[in-house]
Nucleic acid binder design. Structure first.
Ligand SMILES: [Mn+2]
Ligand SMILES: [Mn+2]
Ligand SMILES: [Mn+2]
Ligand SMILES: [Mn+2]
Lengths: 196, 196
DNA sequence: ATAATAATTTAGACAAATCTAAAAATAATT
DNA sequence: AATTATTTTTAGATTTGTCTAAATTATTAT
């Protein structure tokens, strides 16, 4: 089993997430996401490339290799299982769990994680509705409709939160909206700031 | 709140434990306990001294300051709470918990630890019978009798394991002795290897 | 197509934590 | 007390992950 430093794990996980939106991941995007200077990103990408975790060509950005993706999924699994634990067993609110899970995710003892998974009853999603990869890294993302594309009057159930910034999560708290809430679009106002 | 690196925390905890037996802690003893070269110990002791965590004078060893002890007790608290969690909630055996807790103890979020404590029902001891410091760092060590000094025929209850090496723990497993077991000294054989 | 701008990499430096080998201080033996 | 052995510290080097400033490459605008 390959061992990674906390820094390496944070890179792998961040590349995984950025890849979902941008396909190929730019050095600057990683720098922004990790609050790290672009020069440092280049250094680390070379290292992860040599370790076979990312495919990287200078000036063209990077993508995870098959092994890199496997590793990233392991980290995402740990992160979300701990978030579930903090929320369901320790009573943390959904805006608090992320910060703590950010540390717990780096304790990488396979037996620990699989026993935690069982203890939690093999949950399928974390407190934000994000799917938890299983022990083999398999992830099940159910078919969903984005709120922005939901037509007026239709009733829907909230299953996942796209923007998980503290502001959005607290706003949802105030409006008493959580995972499982039934909602209905009263009026669809086109928000210009979504487009630019 | 002061923040420490994983390395610093491991030093503080180890100094705390060694202090219990030796009073003043020698550089070499720390080196042995931490599997680290004596030269590295000296470097770190200077650093911890500058931070006010240990009182250190060259060639004379070190002791924890009041703040250093406070910090060490926090680490011990986290370690033992996680051991209890692993044992009671996840079903780990008592010889497995230490290794995992060695990593978990470094996740230092106060709210996490206090909520974990409550979730576990404010346990007084870890799976090896060692006392768990409370949120204020207060530690309650009940009066006990060492097995070596227990007189023949007397019945006693096992409350704590002194030597927690895997060998000893597995031997106790085999003999079906655990915390809470009632035992009786049949015959007291003086073991020479205890003295040299 | 050239020039200006933005993104990325290289070069050189630094702090943290470790190491080995050599020097210095302390402790133990004769 | 002098010598020897042990412990500890200093000196100098290494690895990891980061930084800033300068150079290079790619992109955008004129
Ligand atoms: Mn993290
Ligand atoms: Mn989440
Ligand atoms: Mn540790
Ligand atoms: Mn223990």
């Amino acid at each position: 089993m390959i061992r990674f430093s906390v820094a390496e794990e944070n890179y792998l996980k961040t590349i995984y997430h950025l890849q979902h939106t941008s396909g190929i991941v730019a050095t600057n995007d990683l720098a922004t996401a990790l609050h790290t200077a672009p020069a440092s990103i280049t250094d680390m990408l070379k290292k992860l490339s040599k370790k076979g975790m990312v495919s990287y060509k200078a000036y063209y950005g990077c993508t995870l290799t098959a092994t890199g993706t496997e590793q990233a999924l392991g980290i995402v699994r740990r992160h979300r299982l701990w978030e579930h634990f903090l929320s369901q067993k320790l009573g943390f609110s959904w805006e608090e769990v992320h910060e703590v899970a950010e540390e717990l995710e780096h304790v990488s003892n396979e037996k620990l994680i699989n026993k935690l998974d069982a203890f939690l009853g093999f949950p399928r999603t974390d407190p934000h509705g994000d799917p938890i990869p299983d022990a083999k890294g398999k992830i099940f993302q159910p078919r969903q409709v984005s709120l922005a594309t939901l037509s007026e009057k239709k009733i829907a159930v909230v299953t996942q939160i796209g923007n998980q910034s503290p502001q959005v999560l607290e706003m949802l708290d105030e409006k008493n909206i959580s995972i499982g809430s039934r909602i209905q679009v009263i009026k669809n106002i086109h928000l210009m700031n979504l487009w630019r």
